[in-house]
Amino acid sequence: MSTRALMRKLEDFEGPRLVPLGGDLYGASFFLMKLLPARFMLERATERGLLRPGGTVCESSSGTFGLALAMLAVQHGYKLILVSDWALDRHLHRRLIELGAEVTIVDRPALTGGLQQARLDRLQEYLQEASGSFWPSQYYNSDNPLSYGKVAEQFVDRLGKVDCLVGPVGSGGSMSGTSRYLRTLFPDLYAIGVDTPNSVLFGQPSGKLNLSGLGGNILPTNVDHSQFDEVHWLVPAEAFHATHDLHRKHGLFMGPTSGAAYRVAQWWSRNNPGKTVVALFPDEGHRYAETVYDEKWLEKITGWSELPKASPLAVGTPRAPMSGWSRFAWGRRSFDDVLGQAND
């Protein structure tokens, strides 16, 4: 037996609700998925003496991870400094401030790595200033993927065997971690990652990203490429259409990365009847009321007025230019294995 510093006051919000979506497809609908890795990382940091009671947590985030940290910081008495950029939604910004977080906005991109790198640079300054402060570092901290054993437990507890897992990839923690845990029981699990064009995560040339939570311009170590059987890329308009479908057809008011996972999972499920499929839906739709759920805002999105594609285009290399939904048979290979071949 060991004594551990526990931060479980919000534990009931950590797990997903499992919603049947027709056939053998289930949506794992989270209130805020990032609460689980955030809590796990903080607990582990206290265990290792990296975070002391009342200490300071610094992180770079403009999304759900920052919100999860802010909620935990309030509940468990930590100080939080968040480095963010213009993409931070103004409502979320207000909410973070109300939660007592110190929020810094970076507005000039770094020469390489864009705004994401500029945020990390600023974060380093804070970490040096505030001695004894802890950086969870969700993109590089292996405790992020490690935290998902609990989610895998919930899936097998409810569904027994899971044949296919589909989810959006940002830091890579949720998909890499959950797939790995499920494979201790079901080695044949088929894992599908959902990314977006211009994201470097699975080999697209770096470019401007317009879908927060999906993809990135820096490759995080928490993306374990060897876990993925297949990768899909959706452009924002496609993800948004799917997000509306998920709401209209199933009553689930979720964020756009959930929509992206839903679109891919539904397609795979239709082509593989009898297989139990779970799609990860990482957050709810409220944060997107003025964007993804606003018709006026949507009208300005490239491709919004077009009829969405019913199936993806198979690409021969992840480097291919992509104008819409694409897929690639990744085959659980490493990044270098795949891109070495792509370069030939």
Binding site: R44, D143, L146, S147, Y148, G149, K150, A152, E153, Q154, F155, V156, D157, R158, L159, G160, K161, Y181, L182, T184, L185
Partner: peptide, 25 residues
């Protein structure tokens, strides 16, 4: 830590296997 966390899904499937009398699980 990976092993410790792996025991969670094992426990989940154990529960399902017993509940549904599923020897294969």
């Amino acid at each position: 830590q990976l092993e410790i966390e792996s025991f969670r899904p094992l426990r989940g499937l154990l529960r399902t296997a017993i509940k549904s009398a599923d020897a294969r699980m």
